[in-house]
Simulated scan of single mutants.
Amino acid sequence: MEKLLVRAPMNRESLEKLRLYFTEIIYMPWTDTGERFYEQEMIACLLAEKPDALITELDVINETVLKEYSALAFIGDCRAAPENIDVKACEKYNIPVLCTPARNANAVAEMWVSTLIAFERNLVASVNWTKEKQWQPGTTPYYLWMGNEIYKSKIGFVGFGAVARNIARLLQGFNVEIAFYDPFVKEASEYKKESLEELFATSDYISVHLPVTETTKRMINRDLLKLIKSESLFINSSRSAVVDNQALYDLIAAGKIRGAILDVLDTEPPVGPDSEVVDLPNVLLTPHIYGASHQVVDHQSEIITRSIEEYLKKQELAGVGDRP
Rank of each mutant, 00 (worst) to 15 (best):
Y290S: 12
G272S: 08
E197K: 15
E268P: 01
Y205S: 04
A164I: 00
W112M: 07
A118W: 08
K314A: 15
E68A: 12
I261A: 12
R222E: 15
D244N: 13
A81T: 13
Y38G: 02
L251Q: 11
R165H: 00
L15K: 00
N84C: 14
E24F: 09
G159R: 00
S14D: 10
N11G: 04
W145R: 03
I150S: 06
G255N: 14
T100S: 11
E197M: 11
V271N: 04
D322K: 14
S14C: 10
R222Q: 14
E214Y: 10
S14M: 06
D279P: 00
R323K: 14
E91L: 13
P51C: 01
P324G: 06
V297F: 06
I75L: 10
C99S: 06
F200Y: 09
F174R: 06
L225F: 13
D204P: 04
N148V: 02
A125N: 09
M111Q: 10
V296C: 07
L262D: 05
L54C: 01
W135R: 12
S238R: 02
T23L: 08
E13Y: 08
T56M: 00
Y69W: 08
N148D: 09
L123F: 15
L144V: 07
E2F: 03
E268K: 11
A107K: 02
L54S: 01
A125D: 11
Y21T: 02
G138D: 12
F180I: 03
V6E: 05
L171K: 02
L20R: 15
L199I: 11
A107V: 04
M28V: 09
A162H: 05
A105N: 05
C99D: 01
